[in-house]
Design a binder for these strands. Structure first.
Lengths: 192, 192
DNA sequence: GTCTATAATTCGATAGAC
DNA sequence: GTCTATCGAATTATAGAC
């Protein structure tokens, strides 16, 4: 019991978790530029200097905050007839359950004016939606089909979680599944 | 011919137009926070102090830059069978022809982390898409139908003009009209 | 009208006492 | 580990010379 236990119970590095929580909240609300280290420190009730001490820079803190818990499990590929339904259900589960939801909001909000975040969004959709959509239509068409799926998913996310357009916020899960599912089905399979 | 002609030919207030052009370009590229008055002045090849002299503040400059030429004429309402097609064609005309296109990109990019811009986007879609969509389905459903249309349109704009997702950028006008038009038709009319 | 100079903030990051 | 104090750079905006 001298120095390291395999399972650190909780040292004063609970501070680290507090900083990360505060950062995730403020990055999600105001984006990368809008959230200052001072604001984050104030929300975490610690000194601004500690933020730099625990994380080397604001960039590193942002990367940790945005990428934490963002490793989304792949959509369960069932059969061709229900791929649209499966995608939209997975979307709702990802975006409406923390902590993945917070990470996605952070990324999408910051992507508008931060190239690092924008590149990460492109990467997420290249690794998450394209492989899911690819097997269900003409392989030569995979890019177009995945792009259309992404446009609808990102549009829904933008309206519902970023801009908070009232009629889109008001949609129930059932309505979204019923209305958007068939569209994704059409886009994913390339049916005309 | 002493002071004012009804039609000012062009005084040194061509400077004003230069500032506005530079502001629109940089706001569109980097958003409100990312574009500084110094950068705008440098691009316009004038002194930063002149920017404040011509426009009272950065906020006022942004408002001018973002709202200029944003008064979109209403979509021509033809008949119920072609409303989806009409909306997507109007969308492409608006977003791919300056100067309206620049104004929309400025607004959408800044809306992610600027509440003024976000409110303006909500306002644009409340006055532009809702009235167009409303007459073509159950009036009690107008909010939901307009919200779904907005989600697809904003998603397409986000992927194509902001994030520049390669497969979405690659889509031709014909492909967009063919693929997205029927989806908007379905959303706008509420057909299941 | 255009510019220099600068005020007044705010930012990220560092140094060093305790 | 935590803090005070501060640096250096960037920002918006103003005052005043020419």
């Amino acid at each position: 019991m001298s120095t390291n236990q395999p399972k650190k119970p909780s040292k004063s590095d609970r501070t680290r978790a507090q900083i990360l929580d505060a950062a995730r909240q403020l990055f999600a609300e105001h984006g990368y530029d809008g959230a200052s280290i001072r604001d984050i420190a104030a929300l975490a009730s610690i000194d601004p200097a500690m933020v730099i001490r625990y994380f080397r820079s604001k960039d590193e803190l942002f990367a940790r905050a945005a990428l934490l818990d963002l490793q989304l499990p792949a959509t369960q590929v069932t059969d061709r007839a229900s791929i649209g339904d499966a995608i939209i259900r997975r979307f709702l589960r990802t975006w409406e359950n923390s902590p993945s939801a917070t990470g996605m909001v952070i990324l999408l909000r910051s992507a508008a004016s931060n190239e690092f975040a924008a590149e990460k969004v492109r990467d997420v959709f290249a690794t998450q939606v394209r492989p899911v959509v690819a097997p269900f239509g003409d392989p030569a068409d995979a890019g177009r089909r995945a792009g259309l799926v992404a446009s609808q998913l990102l549009g829904l996310a933008t309206c519902r979680y970023l801009l908070r357009l009232p009629p889109v916020v008001a949609l129930s899960h059932e309505e979204i599944i019923r209305d958007v599912g068939p569209v994704l089905q059409r886009y994913a399979t390339g049916a005309d």
